[in-house]
Design a protein around this nucleic acid. Structure first.
Length: 807
RNA sequence: GCGAGAGUGGCGGAAUUGGUAGACGCACUGGCCUUAGGAGCCAGCGGCCGCAAGGUCAUAGGGGUUCAAAUCCCCUCUCUCGCACCA
């Protein structure tokens, strides 16, 4: 009688799997390829986070399950090791990232990931800081540049004063830096951009047909932020024309003033002498506010009059032009027509500065006075000359725009909230942007043959906040010659955003053995797009959007033949500890190693999957892992020949048959819908049934080993081997259930009187109502409840329920 | 403010299409075994009444539809997430 010893069993199989390359796959020979991708981690010095393990195990279950279902599963892993996270940590502890990162990776891989029982294919590991990798990250940059998808431009950017670099819009969350939570400032700087907006419409539209978690799609839709409207041209009285964007062209007759964003360049020329001072003061204020106190969302509206007037093209009406910071330079044209009667913000502003409010859309009876509250609902046009009476938002909009379009004063326009991706960073720990500035030729991309542009080892890599990157201080790096004309030149010293490294890593995995090209055409054709991608939803508008965009760019350049990188994306949930978010300051961080050491990886995996809903997250409680160890002990006791001999020929009773086959069915279905907690509950029920009835069967044990193998690979493998199989359980076939065994000869009927449960009766399957009635009426309980009552209706749910409605 | 989702025992969570609410597990209680137990096994475990059989209430709160509602509809409250002066 051998007791289950996770330490011994897990060590044995870890070694065996490595020796036999059980987790490997023949990339070229695979007949039934399945690319199972999980989001690669950044190898922090703190080690693997339990959230990572949770994500990986849930993904690994899919990979292992697909393998038993007959797929050739490719499940690679890598390290997203460039970026501010690693660099900031290195700065904090006074070390160099280039010295730390390899050790961190080693620790992640050897001490942690390899002990979690993940079916990872380590032959195709990726490390974004390896020159053999970032060489191709730079190649991506150059390729995008050559094809018009990258450009350099001056404009307002988000600047993190603590990280001392610019950030992409996606990396600013509630006006704070995604990495360090400092308040982000606005600065005017020249930066590199990728044209993400070029594919705005396609990225949006393709979402509808993607098999992705709905919440991820919603986040992307919202972020792309499409709005339909019109550009309308106004004229400054006695001056030039300007364009505004509006989603409500139907309300043009109600425009009683105009608002320009404080940064709008036209303000310089139109503002009258006597208003100039006030404007300048206001601009200063607006700048200061945007830098610090923007959080105060319920701020009162502010603004200044410019002294200038505009002419409304629909009616020639003269309306004042104001400057106010509730209009943003970064959206639309940076200028709006204000219709206080039908826009809440305009209404607020108009009231404060006593500007006229003219209603142009009729509202149903009962709506409050338009002078007190804006009306934004549906209605018909009024006070709108020839357009009176038209349904405002639909026909009204259409006809007004069309009438103005004749004189080129308006056109239908679609606006997106999405901005181009600002990709340059004034930091050290990233792939240098492969661009050379030549005195004669201007911007010259580094020729492919010269890649990689190696990141030099800088002793002092600290960002100085000047907006110029640390690499600028390395004169040897900085000064170079032009690859085109040989003249004196210098290198770009910004590095690219870490999200560029991760936007293409999954193309690299299958092709890591091709040193000279980023990805091999044949391998890519065979393995991509990714079949299943599991990861956190926090990347919805970051990594997931960037990588979708890059895929479209590569597709349009003609480098790949698909436009979407991931066929299916599943967003997993977030783990909390005792109902609270884990954080270092709270001291409630879970260290996976401790649990693996004490109870084994299988128990830890099992608990992570059992404690909650994979797609929504769970609440980690101490004690839970121990509970899973107890379950594995019970499993061992009923299914391992090492514990006690199994019976081979004893026929299984119908009840057990039913249990067995319904479990097979349920577990398969649950895995496919990522309902791991219920899949495990079903397996536990089966084990409980066996324990209770002292059933130890070879047949059942072989099923159990396979059902549990995606969740707890080590113990499953051990049981499988003890059953006499000479090859890995992962070369076996997923068990199939027999529909016939799912039919039970007798079922328990629920008898209800007026919808209330009164009795349960065992009856044969498939009885007709006529057959059921006399049997049910034999029940003393039922007759008692029916006594003196009249049955007015009978409801029958086959093989399940009878309900008598009585009076 | 807009959008999405959620609210079920002491706790984590179950409940494919409306059809036995609380599966499975944790914790707890009692018993057995034991020199001992942070081991194992057996039993109990939503509230109230009851020795029990059973009854009755119960899925955030309030209404409704239905023979039947955690599930569908309306209203209210609370929480989580995403977006947010986006014209």
């Amino acid at each position: 009688m051998v007791k289950y010893d996770p330490k011994k069993v897990e060590a044995k199989w870890k070694e065996r799997w490595e020796k036999n390359n059980t987790d490997g796959v023949d990339l070229d020979g695979a007949k039934n390829p399945f690319y199972n991708l999980m989001m690669f981690p950044y190898p922090s010095a703190e080690g693997l986070h339990v959230g990572n393990v949770f994500a990986f195990v849930g993904s690994d279950i899919q990979g292992r399950y697909r393998r038993l279902k007959g797929f050739d599963v490719f499940e690679p892993m890598g390290f997203d090791a460039f970026g501010m996270h690693s660099e900031n940590f290195a700065l904090k502890i006074g070390r160099h990232p280039a010295d730390m990162v390899p050790k961190n990776i080693e620790h992640f891989r050897e001490d942690q990931l390899k002990k979690m029982g993940l079916m990872l294919n380590w032959e195709h590991q990726v490390d974004t800081t390896n020159p053999n990798y970032y060489r191709f990250t730079q190649w991506m940059f150059v390729t995008l540049y050559k094809n018009g998808f990258a450009y350099k431009a001056k404009g307002q950017v988000n600047w993190c004063p603590s990280c001392k670099t610019v950030l992409a819009k996606e990396q600013v969350i509630d006006d704070r830096c995604e990495r360090c939570s400092s308040l982000v400032e606005k600065r005017d700087m020249e930066q590199w951009y990728f044209k993400t907006t070029y594919f705005a419409e396609e990225l949006l539209e393709a979402l509808d047909s993607l098999d992705w978690s709905e919440r991820t799609k919603i986040a992307q839709r919202q972020w792309i932020g499409k709005s339909l409207g019109a550009d309308v041209t106004f004229q400054v009285e006695g001056g030039e024309e300007f364009t505004i964007f509006t989603t409500r062209p139907d309300t043009l007759f109600g425009a009683t003033y105009m608002v320009f964003s404080p940064e709008h360049p036209l303000l310089d020329t139109i503002t009258t002498e006597e208003n100039l001072k006030a404007l300048e003061e206001y601009r200063r204020q607006a700048q200061a506010i945007s830098e610090t106190e923007r959080q105060n969302e319920k701020r009162e509206k502010t603004g200044v009059f410019t002294g200038a007037y505009a002419i409304n093209p629909v009616n020639g009406r003269r309306v004042p032009i104001w400057a106010a910071d509730y209009v943003l330079m970064g959206y639309g044209t940076g200028a709006i027509m204000a219709v206080p009667a039908h826009d809440i913000r305009d209404h607020e502003f108009a009231k404060k500065f006593s500007l006229p409010i003219i209603q142009v859309v009729s509202s149903p009876i009962g709506t409050p006075d338009i002078q007190l509250e804006a009306y934004t609902g549906e209605g018909n046009l009024m006070n709108s000359g020839p357009f009176d009476g038209l349904p405002a938002k639909t026909e009204g909009s259409k006809q007004i725009v069309e009438s103005l379009a004749k004189d080129n004063k308006a056109q239908f326009k679609t606006n997106y909230r999405l901005r181009d991706w600002c990709v340059s960073r004034q930091r050290y720990w990233g792939p240098p942007i492969p661009i050379i500035y030549c005195d004669k030729c201007g911007i010259v991309p580094v020729p492919e043959a010269d890649l990689p542009v190696l990141l030099p080892y800088l002793e002092d890599f600290k960002p100085d906040g000047s907006g110029v990157s640390p690499l600028h201080r390395d004169k040897e790096f900085y000064h170079t010659t032009c690859p085109q004309c040989g003249s004196k030149a210098h290198r770009e010293t910004d590095v690219s955003d870490n999200f560029l490294c991760s936007a293409w890593y999954f193309y690299r995995y299958p092709s890591t053995d091709f040193p000279d090209i980023p990805f091999d055409a044949t391998r890519t054709k065979k393995w991509l797009p990714v079949d299943l991608y599991v990861g956190g939803n926090e990347h919805a508008v970051l990594h997931l959007l960037y990588s979708r965009w890059l895929c479209r760019a590569l597709h349009s350049i003609g480098l790949i033949d698909f436009a979407e990188p991931y066929k299916k994306f599943v967003a997993h949930g977030i783990i909390v500890k005792d109902g609270a978010k884990m954080s270092k300051s709270k001291g409630n961080i879970i260290n996976p190693d401790d649990y693996v050491k004490e109870f084994g990886a299988d128990s830890f995996r099992l608990y992570l999957m059992f404690m909650g809903t994979y797609l929504e997250g769970g609440d980690f409680r101490d004690g839970g892992v121990k509970g899973m160890k107890g379950f594995l002990d019970r499993l061992w006791a009923v299914s391992s020949p090492q514990f006690a001999p199994l019976t081979y020929e004893l026929p299984l009773g119908p009840e057990t048959q039913y249990f067995l086959h319904s479990t097979i069915k349920a577990v398969g279905q649950d895995i496919e819908r990522f309902s791991y907690n219920t899949a495990l509950a079903h397996i536990m029920e089966l084990v409980n049934h066996l324990t209770k009835n002292k059933i130890r069967s070879q047949e059942i044990a072989s099923v159990l080993a396979r059902l549990l193998s995606p969740f707890a690979p080590h113990i499953s493998e051990e049981i499988w081997e003890s059953l006499g199989f000479s090859t890995s359980v992962f070369t076996a076939k997923w068990p199939e259930y027999d529909e016939e065994k799912l039919i039970r000869p007798e079922v328990e009927y629920v008898v209800q009187i007026n919808g209330k449960l009164r009795d349960r009766i065992q009856l044969a399957v498939g009885l007709t109502p006529e057959e059921i009635d006399p049997l049910v009426l034999q029940s003393p309980v039922v007759t008692k409840w029916l006594e003196g009552k009249e049955i007015v209706k009978k409801i029958y749910v086959p093989d399940k329920l009878i309900n008598f409605v009585v009076k």
